[in-house]
Design a binder for these strands. Sequence first.
DNA 1: GATAAGATCATCT
DNA 2: GATGATCTTATCA
Length: 178
Amino acid sequence: MNEALPRSFFSRPSQAVAPDLLGKLLVRKIGKIKFVGKIVEVEAYLGEEDPAAHAAKGRTGRTEVLYGEPGRAYIFQIHTHNCLNIVTETDKPSCVLFRALEPVSKNFDNTNGPGKLCRALHITKELYGVDMTRSDSPLYIVDSNEQFEVVTSARIGISKAADWPLRFHVKDNPYVSR
DNA sequence: GATAAGATCATCT
DNA sequence: GATGATCTTATCA
């Protein structure tokens, strides 16, 4: 068990990966400590065609990972906090943002937000570019067979293209942000 | 000129 | 009071 999702899982459009990512388990290992959280809210970013995506700005170094392999972790710093994303599609700088997690292992909490999520899991620039498709990485995704209802809604917290239905979250889950 | 790091202002709790 | 896919300034190439 606890086998990381294959790279092929992420080699699809963000809007296809995002909803499938819900209910999956995010594993964060810090030394011998392991945090496990269920993904309950995500947000898809398409890339160059998405005005709200960082890649749309035409960056090359800061968003380097976005242009790289799918399944890689993209750590983005917002103000004094960090945000965790996972890269999708090789050709496009698209990715999926983890907005909220439901604590499975009870050694952490307050994960109902992008910045809070990273703070709780102690995610820093050190994890930038980490391969999340390997179960020996400090950060990876594990499959789950749980049943739940997915809700699609408009994105939040951005100024451009905020009305695009690229936000997905588990219905009736107390850990979903705002 | 380009990349990296730190901060401010609006919205939500 | 806290959080948040942005913006400005500083340092390196």
